[in-house]
């Protein structure tokens, strides 16, 4: 699942990632979802899912790609945040915590792509598009280790990302 706001520059990288990846592969064991800004409306997608990767924009050195395991715990801070600001801005941890409360318990990871510019606009920065290929390789490797071989045409992927990013 890729998430993010395509109208906020690099924040949309996850959403683009899902759109492009979904157009290039099709496996029985895999569902690719462009979650956009779905917030808690995305919960339904986790029913019956065993393993989930969420591709999202994160803060860090622009172009850096990170992987971390989601900790689906509802913290007091998370409750306060949703109470005060609503569900549009929730994090993958909160989303998965809510999914866990509904009895959907996938093992979940975030593939984070560190952003350069998050500002009004529909373009992805070159750093982020390039990093999306690193993220794809990371995802491919992780899935391979678990016995889910995924083969993606990298050239087509990168072209798709540039197109999605407005280049």
């Amino acid at each position: 699942m890729g998430v993010g706001n395509r109208l906020l520059g690099d924040d949309g990288v996850g959403s683009c990632f899902a759109e492009v990846l979904g157009s290039l592969i099709n496996h029985e064991w895999l569902l690719v979802v462009d979650g956009g800004l779905g917030g808690l409306n995305l919960l339904d997608y986790f029913e019956g899912v065993e393993l989930a990767y969420i591709v999202d924009a994160v803060q860090g050195e622009p172009g850096q790609v990170i992987l971390y395991k989601v900790n689906p715990q509802v913290s007091r801070e998370a409750i306060r945040m949703v109470a005060e600001y609503g569900s549009h801005g929730i994090t993958p941890d909160i989303l998965l915590a809510a999914a866990a409360s509904l009895g959907y318990l996938p093992e979940a990871y975030v593939v984070g792509i560190a952003v350069k510019e998050v500002d009004l606009g529909e373009n992805l920065s070159d750093e982020v598009v390039t990093a999306s290929l690193k993220a794809l390789r990371l995802l491919t490797r992780e899935l391979g280790k678990r016995g889910f071989p995924m083969k993606v045409n990298e050239k087509a992927f990168l072209e798709g990302m540039f197109r999605c990013g407005g280049a």
Partner: peptide, 20 residues
């Protein structure tokens, strides 16, 4: 687009991570 703004003041800033 959600532009996150300080709770009471007219200090506008764009949320760094407006996702999920």
């Amino acid at each position: 687009v959600h532009i996150f703004v300080g709770n009471r003041r007219i200090e506008k800033l764009v949320t760094p991570m407006c996702t999920v």
